[in-house]
């Protein structure tokens, strides 16, 4: 992971997210949290990544997401 070539990217589909938190549990670097400061149209706090730059694009969050709300891109 090189800061020069940019970081990996985890994107959350906020409207699809049901705030179940399984991605929070799955992230080996504990980079994901439920964003209590925002709300989607279902009235749920969507997940967000706290520190994109530390993401290793392992996709474990996405693998455990029951709503396929997570897209993971690796910088190559």
């Amino acid at each position: 992971m090189s800061a020069k070539t940019g970081t990996n990217r985890v994107t959350f589909d906020i409207e699809r997210c049901k705030s179940c938190g399984l991605c929070v549990e799955a992230c080996p670097r504990k980079l994901i949290e439920l964003d209590t400061g925002s709300m989607n149209s279902k009235g749920l706090h969507p997940a967000r990544i706290v520190d994109q730059s530390r993401c290793i694009a392992c996709a474990l969050c996405a693998i455990m997401c029951p709503d396929t709300a997570i897209t993971v891109e690796k910088n190559v």
């Binding site: 996709a59 996405a62 993971v72 690796k74 910088n75 190559v76």
Partner: peptide, 13 residues
């Protein structure tokens, strides 16, 4: 260059 590691499968509506 970003490479998609994980996205939605096409046959999932």
């Amino acid at each position: 260059m970003a490479e998609l590691v994980f996205g939605r499968p096409k046959s999932l509506s």
